[in-house]
Design a protein around this nucleic acid. Sequence first.
DNA 1: GTCTGTGAAGGGCTTCACAGCT
DNA 2: AGCTGTGAAGCCCTTCACAGAC
Lengths: 243, 243
Amino acid sequence: MTEQPSAPGDSGAVRSADIPQATVARLAMYLRVLSALVEDGTLIVSSDELALAAGVGSAKLRKDLSFLGPTGVRGVGYDVARLRERIELALGLDQGHRVVMVGVGSLGRALACYPGFASRGFTIVGLFDADPAVIGTVVGGLTVEDMATFETRCLDLDPTIGVIAVPESVAQSICDRLVGVDVRCILSFAPQFLTAPENVEVRRVDLAIEMQMLSFTGSRNTWANEATGDVAAHLALAGAVQS
Amino acid sequence: MTEQPSAPGDSGAVRSADIPQATVARLAMYLRVLSALVEDGTLIVSSDELALAAGVGSAKLRKDLSFLGPTGVRGVGYDVARLRERIELALGLDQGHRVVMVGVGSLGRALACYPGFASRGFTIVGLFDADPAVIGTVVGGLTVEDMATFETRCLDLDPTIGVIAVPESVAQSICDRLVGVDVRCILSFAPQFLTAPENVEVRRVDLAIEMQMLSFTGSRNTWANEATGDVAAHLALAGAVQS
DNA sequence: GTCTGTGAAGGGCTTCACAGCT
DNA sequence: AGCTGTGAAGCCCTTCACAGAC
């Protein structure tokens, strides 16, 4: 959902794993399922089982995994623990990401407390806000720091990922400051498009857009049901009569 | 990011607008920009301007809009107000969606207070939770109700969209109950895959997956920079010397 | 001349079917 | 026999280039 400008300046010299964007998104999902399987003590899993749990077709899953090189054993299945490690490596999760979060409003607070981050190798190392009422309070085990000290503190924190959870009006300036301290990965919850240098990856999560997409397919389905639901019933009857 | 099984049972009889999924996602973005333009008092906008503000190419934007039929005037541009209405209609936002939210933890609270919903035609009509400590409290102007009264209350509320913001362990059962009260659009923040009937659209937002995708392209970029960044500098030097 | 609308070419992702290993 | 790995076909989407309206 984020633009992938496919880096026109890419000189094709160094290329790590060349994995399709869509596959990367699903690898993250498989990882979740695999972690659950590890906890259950499952040792081997087949592509059918894994695909079912992840909600995709088994062929698609095998194709996805094929980008990591041979990971399974034919006639048997996949070694759960080994596959999990392999995916973590491919996604770069072995590097131990340090996350700074800017904006500790209600959304920021929820994110800081979200257990899914820590459990998957993302350590939140800093919380920042400009509101004096929030600075100094403790959220999710961390003390909220003054945005005025942001640049200085980041020298120590050395963050690899920045999260933007501030109001729209200041989102771009926060983005610039993140870029200024050399953060190359930014996750923004501000609804607008943010401009950043080409070598900085910005992903945007817009909750209203998710809702609007639901609204579209929803109105399509409702419509179809109010019509074809009945139509299907009629056809079924007609078919029954006719045959 | 949600599966689109492309409705195998679709008899092709009734078809509303036949708009590509990817386009729908962007239409929602254009809508945001257009709303901002309306507030600024802008009357006419060109595809270049609109595309720049939305962060896409102008050709892509025009292609997207072409699915709505002729919406602009050649040699002039688009009527901002008219285009906004046209998109709202296409997305089914004119129907006034009623949203019920289940799970009022820190995430649920943040969502309930999120101003972007109300401002775009989504009215939150009910908050539910099973935790006695939360039931009865007021969040975002609404009183949190007991999950035990869910089915009964929904008869009155007649929700069109359901939001799931509960822990993983109960997400599927909440999903089933939403389906039970005839909600056909579900937005889930639980990390796992949820099963639902075919005519129910489930979208999932997994924050950890967004992070992991960042991690991937991030490690790819960092790598590339540590190598090609320097290489590029060397090449620039070499080029300067050579020319 | 300017800017929109659109057929056509191109690229990426999905699906299928089957070869290949155990 | 069972299950993985993978070329090939097909589909959807993006990009290009230009015809067409003002």
